[in-house]
C-alpha cells in the first residue's frame, strides 16, 4: 500500500485554521509517526483571501508534494494507512472505521451545541448531551475496548491505532467543555491516558499551540 519505491519522504503541508478542530487528529498522527510536516495555520481574517485557492473552498487541506487532498476524514484515513495505524486486516480496519463513524456522529451532536445561538436552546442541547448522548457513546467505547481480548487496553489489536487517537481527541474536547467525567468509564479513561502519555504524542501535546477549539 505505501509508496515504498519512493525513497524520499513526501513533503507534507497541512492547511487549517489556528485551532485543533478537524485537523488535530492528523497532527496527532504526524506526531505519532514522527513525520515532519508544515503546520500552516490561518487566522480567520486571512481566510477569505485563501478560500478560492482551496479545492472545495474548505479546510483542512493536506498538500502532499503539491497535490491537494481535501476532507478531514479522508486525510486522517490516508495518514493512518500510510504509517500503519489502520489495523492489520479487513476486520481490524472495519473496527477502526466503526469507531471513526461513531466519532463523526458524536461530533455532529457537539456541533449542534457549539453552533446554537439561542441561549435557552443551547442549555437544552447541552443537557441532552450530558444526560443521554455522550454517555451512549462512552458506553459504546467502553464496550468495544472490553471486547478486544488482546492485551494493552486498546480498541483494536495490541497497539495504538487511529481509533484510539480519535477517541482521545474528542474526549479531550468534551472534557474541556466540562460535559463529561470519565469516572464511569474506566477503560476509556485509561485508554485516553495511554494515548496522551505515548512519548511522541506527549511531546506534541506539550508543544502544540493552546487554542480554544
Amino acid at each position: 500500500m505505501s509508496s515504498s519505491k519512493v525513497m524520499k519522504m513526501p513533503e507534507y503541508r497541512l492547511h487549517y485554521f489556528n485551532g485543533r478542530g478537524a485537523a488535530e487528529p492528523a497532527r496527532i498522527l504526524f506526531a505519532l509517526a514522527d513525520v515532519e510536516y508544515e503546520d500552516v495555520r490561518y487566522e480567520r481574517e486571512d481566510w477569505p483571501a485563501k478560500k478560492p485557492g482551496m479545492p472545495l473552498q474548505a479546510l483542512p487541506v493536506l498538500e502532499i508534494d503539491g497535490k491537494m487532498m481535501t476532507q478531514s476524514h479522508a486525510i486522517i484515513r490516508y495518514l493512518a494507512r500510510e504509517y500503519g495505524f489502520n489495523g492489520t486486516d479487513n476486520m481490524e480496519t472495519f473496527r477502526i472505521d466503526e469507531i471513526h463513524e461513531a466519532i463523526v456522529e458524536l461530533q455532529r451532536e457537539l456541533y449542534k451545541f457549539h453552533f446554537e445561538n439561542d441561549e435557552a436552546k443551547k442549555k437544552e442541547v447541552r443537557q441532552s448531551l450530558v444526560d443521554t448522548i455522550i454517555p451512549k457513546f462512552m458506553n459504546f467505547f467502553e464496550r468495544r475496548i472490553t471486547e478486544n481480548h488482546r492485551s494493552g487496553g486498546y480498541f483494536v489489536g495490541d497497539g495504538i491505532t487511529l481509533a484510539d487517537v480519535l477517541v482521545y481527541n474528542i474526549i479531550f474536547n468534551i472534557e474541556k467543555s466540562q460535559m463529561v467525567s470519565l469516572d464511569n468509564w474506566p477503560k476509556t479513561a485509561a485508554l485516553c491516558k495511554k494515548v496522551a502519555s505515548h512519548p511522541k504524542i506527549a511531546d506534541w501535546l506539550k508543544k502544540r499551540p493552546q487554542t480554544e477549539f
Binding site: 500500500m1 505505501s2 481535501t70 478531514s72 476524514h73 479522508a74 490516508y78 494507512r81 500510510e82
Partner: peptide, 13 residues
C-alpha cells in the same frame, strides 16, 4: 493508498 484517499474524499463529499 492514494487512490483509497481519493475514494474516501468522495465518500465524505
Amino acid at each position: 493508498n492514494w487512490e483509497l484517499a481519493q475514494i474516501d474524499q468522495i465518500l465524505d463529499l
